[in-house]
Every structure is written in C-alpha cells, then in structure tokens.
Amino acid sequence: MLPEGRCGRPMNQVILDEILPCLPVKLRSAMQMLPAELLARTHEIRLRRGRPVMLVAGDDEVFVSSRGGVALGPDEGYILSDQETLVTLQLMAGSSIYTYEDEIRQGYVTLRGGHRVGIVGRAVVQDGAVKVIKDVSGFCIRISREVMGAADAVMPHLVKSHNRLFHTLIVSPPRCGKTTLLRDIARQASDGVPSLGLAGLRVGVVDERSEIAACYGGIPQNTVGLRTDVLDACPKAAGMIMLVRSMSPDLVVTDEIGREDDAVAVREVMNAGVSIVATAHGESLEDVVRRPALRCLFEAQMFERVVTLSSTEGPGTVETVLDLKTGKPVLTRSAR
C-alpha cells in the first residue's frame, strides 16, 4: 500500500496534484510516467538549471528520464533548460513574482499543500541585505508530509498541568522531523489530549518560513488544531511578542530559534506566563548551548524540557526527552 498523504490521498497523488502543476509542461509529462511507488516515497525533488532533474526517495537518488519515467543514469536525465527554470519560478510563484517577493528574497516559496521550495541563484545585495535573487539556478522541492501522531511518544512528558505544557526546546539536525513533531505538538495541545488530562489550549504559531502551518493564501494547509492562530511569514522575535499581546495564547510555538532577538523574545513570552515550544538546529543539546545567543536561556534555566531527535530509526526518532531541572532523561530511545 502506498504511504498516505493529506486528506487520505496517497502521497504519489499529492505530488501529482500539488507539485506537478508548478513544473514546466514537458517535465510534468516526463514525471507523470514515474512509478507510483517511487513518487509516493519521494521526499525531495531537485531541479538544477542545465543539469538532470533528480528525485530523492529515502536514501535513493533517482534521475527523471528525458523520455519520461526513470533514467538509468544522469546521461539519460531530463535537463532543465534556462527557459524552463524561469517558467518554474513563475509557476511556483502563482504567476505573480511580486506576491512572493519577500519569500523569494529569503530563498524559498511555499506551494499549495505546504510544500517548501528552496531557491538558489545569484543574490543581489543592498545595504548588507539580500534585495533579490536573480539568475535562479536551482530549486529544492521538499514534499510536506503531515504525520498525525508524530508527538504521541513525547506528549506525556511535555504536559505540566491540565492547561500548561513545559517550556520545551526540540533539538535536531536538519531532516530529522523537528518541524513535523512541532506541528503535531501544536495540534495536540490545541485540540486537547483527554487521556493526558490536557484541555485544549489557545496556541499561537509564529510561522516565519511558513513551514509549520504552511499557509497558502492565509489558510493553513496543515492541520494545526482547533484553537490555533497562525502568524504567517512574520519574523519570529516580533511575532512572538505580537501574539502574546494580541491573541492571549496559552502556548506559543515557533521554529528554529537561534538569534539574539529570538532569545529576548522567548524570555519575554516565558515571563508573560505563556508556555513555549520551539526548535533549534543542532546535533545535540551541547551544540545548542554553545551558541552564544541561546546560552543565556539555559543559564537562566528558562527551558524545562529538551527533546532530542535523530534519524537513527528514520526521521522523527526521539533520542531523549530531558528534564532540565533534574538533568535526567524522562524518556530515552532505548527505554521506548
């Protein structure tokens, strides 16, 4: 059976419906000839100008053939032309580059369905900031997979009382499923978990890179819960403060903190009596603590739980849930 995607559709159908319309017509036809099983496993599509189109499915890398279907090697691969690169960018931007100007400047766009597309090219810098990315040379389409229940194992260790979660930091290297876990924590906290005695909380999500709720036209494409308000495409630090002031949340959820102003905002949120669940890039907790911007948060013992992820048993493997007060793990992979 093929892995299930959003709304009960198999993942290959999700790709056909949501990704292919954003690709040039010829490439679209070539990809329609790929085996359903391969498409269903695909989690990245890499397009590079002048080079063969590649799919990443699990640990496999597969080239799309210029005749359609799977290529036997890169020589047979479908080469993305200059014109097709431009067309792809326009299609991904919903035929209006100006609407996605800020996102493109930051190097990504979000497609309908919450799929994130990283964009590279030549950056034009003005006053130290990227003004525009021109001569676009490549795209990395990351297929969004919503995993309902991804947080089932950790939730019992994150609930502090019937209306509070512990201040939690999720630490993980890239592609280990921290955003997927974060999204499911937000959903479960928002809907409430009766078996854990957790009532539904008012959740505020600051989704700077549109990865958590994956808003498209202001509508969350992912299930983020009944009581969740999403501040989309807003800088994290400003967004956290805005949410606390305007939406009176019980829990603030945000992705990838790491800058000085993020740490200041996290502190503000915690001091306002609002729980926070955030993520940070890092191989281990030690990695994160070493970062000057975040060190002060640990020195002041602001966080109460740290969840560490890896991909040892596939993306989303929970290595440990650490209680920072006692310094002892309350959940380890081996214990599970």
Binding site: S95, Y98, T99
Partner: peptide, 12 residues
C-alpha cells in the same frame, strides 16, 4: 492591488 495588498495576479 499590487502595491498595497500584493494580491496574486489573476485575482488582482
């Protein structure tokens, strides 16, 4: 529509 709301083209 373009300057204020950045409305997507078809809708604009």
């Amino acid at each position: 529509e373009i300057s204020y709301a950045r409305t997507p083209l078809a809708e604009a």
